[in-house]
Simulated scan of single mutants.
Amino acid sequence: MSIVTPIQSKSGFTRMDNDLYEALIGAELSGRELRVALAIHRQTAGYNLESACIAASYIAEMSGIRREDVSRAICELIRQGVIYRDGGSRSPIGFAPIGEWKIDKKNTHPNKPKEVPQCGVSNTSNVAFLPHNKERNTNTTPDGVVVYAERQPAQAKPARQKPAMEACPYQDIVDLYHKALPELPAVAILNDGRKRALQARWRESEVHRDLSFWADYFCQVKASQFLMGQVPGRNGSKPFRATFDWLIAPSNFVKVVEGNYHA
């Protein structure tokens, strides 16, 4: 009896290139990144398209992942060269050539051979046995009398402290802003208010605690004609142009990450 399930053409199916399939299997992507990549493949190759405009909210509905986390996964996939996007956050998405992928090495702890436990050997048997801790210590007097001493209870181990969170590299983030967005107003003074805002964004997510995320964030801003002041204002008003303070404000930060901003 055949165990191969035939494809039901009436319900539809999506073909995947073998090289892409095998590359996704071998790539060290996180579970969330892989699920988002598969959703993108479904919405592109599934409709015989090389790229398509896919809203983060739609992928979130497909995958059950929060929209904000979908946007972050898309940014990570773009940064690692797995997918590409022509233009801003609302532009079409497609898979990049496999040879251009630059996947992060996430497994930083290579497998090591297990240590062989030490064994004691009985004088009356050839069977090896594992050493064990006695509940009572024994002492022998000069007369040969064995005296048992109750074992003292072990002292409680001090509670493990959580590792301190890495301090926010304020100046490095500002330098990335200046490098990516020289057209926008420069940050002349890194005052306490700006440091507090950066510290809050830095602490919000582990994804934010990476300078590569901020480099991608500012590149995403640069790709937006609206944020760069290249879109005429309404009723002849002056075009809007983002500033550093605007970009690191809580509500605006989420809008840019999720691509949920418009003129």
Rank of each mutant, 00 (worst) to 15 (best):
K157W: 11
G120S: 05
A45E: 13
Q43P: 06
E258W: 04
D216P: 04
V147R: 00
V254T: 11
Q225S: 13
N18C: 05
T5I: 04
E61G: 07
V254G: 07
I78Q: 08
V254L: 12
V4L: 02
R151S: 06
K102L: 13
S237T: 15
P169N: 10
S63H: 03
C219R: 12
S71V: 04
L130T: 13
I74A: 05
G87K: 02
C75H: 12
P185T: 03
V127C: 06
G26Y: 13
K102S: 15
G259Q: 09
S91N: 10
A154E: 11
A23E: 11
Y170H: 15
A27T: 10
S9D: 14
L34R: 13
G64F: 12
L29S: 10
K102H: 14
G259S: 13
H262P: 04
N137K: 06
S2N: 12
N137P: 01
V147K: 00
Y84A: 06
R90W: 07
V36D: 04
G31K: 08
R136Y: 08
W214C: 01
G229I: 14
T140V: 05
K10H: 14
F240Y: 15
V36P: 05
L34V: 04
G12C: 05
G87L: 01
L176N: 00
K179L: 04
N126G: 03
D172H: 03
D143T: 02
P239A: 05
H132C: 14
V82H: 04
D216Y: 11
P239L: 05
Y148T: 00
R203W: 06
S91G: 06
E183Y: 05
G144L: 02
G144N: 10
R136K: 09
D17S: 12
A56L: 02
P153S: 07
R209V: 05
S57Q: 13
N18H: 15
V207E: 08
I189S: 07
K179N: 01
G81L: 09
L211H: 02
G46S: 11
T140L: 00
E204T: 08
A197G: 01
S71L: 05
M16L: 15
T5E: 03
K222H: 07
D175V: 03
V116Y: 12
K195G: 03
A263L: 15
I83N: 01
Y58M: 07
E150A: 10
Y148P: 00
T5F: 00
D69P: 10
S71E: 01
F226W: 15
G120Q: 01
G236R: 15
V121M: 05
F244K: 01
N126F: 02
V257E: 07
I189A: 06
N191W: 02
E100M: 12
E22W: 14
N107W: 10
A188L: 07
W214I: 06
E100P: 07
R15C: 05
